[in-house]
Design a protein around this nucleic acid. Structure first.
Ligand code: SF4
Ligand code: SF4
Lengths: 145, 145
DNA sequence: ATTAAACAAGACTAATATATCTTATATTAT
DNA sequence: ATAATATAAGATATATTAGTCTTGTTTAAT
């Protein structure tokens, strides 16, 4: 819906790193085990995140990955763009009749445009630290029951 | 984003039928030409819409398709469901960590849920007649320039 | 009746997204 | 130095979606 499966895995991995932040590197396999992501597949996704400097990797024995920078300053859309690439210039959304503009909109424009805006806003305002906090909180609640 | 390419084509075809409504049947090829949709592919999509009674087909020479009922009473989500099938019971949206509920939501829940609601609302409140009217209006504006 | 023109249906192909396999390279403990 | 263990990288495989081809069936004009 919002992004590919690959991007979803990437986000999950980065949330994991934020939640269990450490000075020691975290193995990719630790994350893929925890979230049940195919190991090699996640490894490749991690590679592209490393190239985009969202992660740092330390190779060799006792190696692993770290966050590339402070999770408070990493926003969802960065992760999505890194993996799925930026959205196309003329993104045909909704019904896909011809090109869109505010003057000659497609027939869904007036309801769809605000929704699209809300999605963009969500992806560009949510940062990793907040997301990870909420995951921790969720886990706390679930364990209580 | 909202539905598959097939569903998009299906919507386009039904908008066409609404806009150029007629007592004579409209050939599938007329529509596929007008909207540049692969003919045979649209034919198959049309078949499933016929099965779901959203369209009626008249076979043989001078045959073609009609709307199954009044376009005022056909809503977008019906077309989408007919082609893409209904959404999964436990639709994992957003980040996809475990299952979702209002009590133990995934970390995007509070921003994503209202958006999801808006999308559902859009699909279930937009009817064909309105959409077709807007297309006509759009065409009028574009021709003026 | 014959034939042309339309939809119907299912097999087949192509493109894309998702996932796995294999080999290379880097790093560290011994 | 050697072996173990990690990421790096690209080839290969599988699944899903999109699109094509072939043949069949229905209908109406001739
Ligand atoms: S909804 Fe608006 S932005 Fe989206 S395709 Fe239609 S006109 Fe363009
Ligand atoms: S956003 Fe809400 S509804 Fe969607 S997966 Fe998260 S908890 Fe579930």
């Amino acid at each position: 819906m919002l992004y590919s499966k690959s991007a979803e895995y990437g986000i999950q991995a980065m949330i994991y790193l934020t939640e269990y932040r450490s000075d020691e590197p975290t193995m990719v396999s630790t994350i893929s085990d925890a979230y049940d992501i195919p190991h090699q597949y996640l490894a490749k996704i991690v590679q592209t995140l490393v190239k985009h400097r969202l992660l740092k990797a330390k190779r060799g024995r006792n190696g692993g990955i770290f966050l590339g920078r402070n999770p408070k300053d990493i926003y969802l859309h960065e992760i999505v763009y890194a993996i799925d690439g930026p959205p196309p210039e003329n993104e045909k959304c909704a019904i896909g009749l011809d090109l869109c503009s505010d003057e000659t909109p497609c027939p869904l424009h007036h309801t769809w445009k605000p929704i699209k805006g809300a999605i963009r806003e969500m992806l560009s305002s949510e940062n990793l630290l907040e997301l990870a906090k909420r995951v921790t909180e969720k886990r706390r609640i679930m364990n209580k029951k």
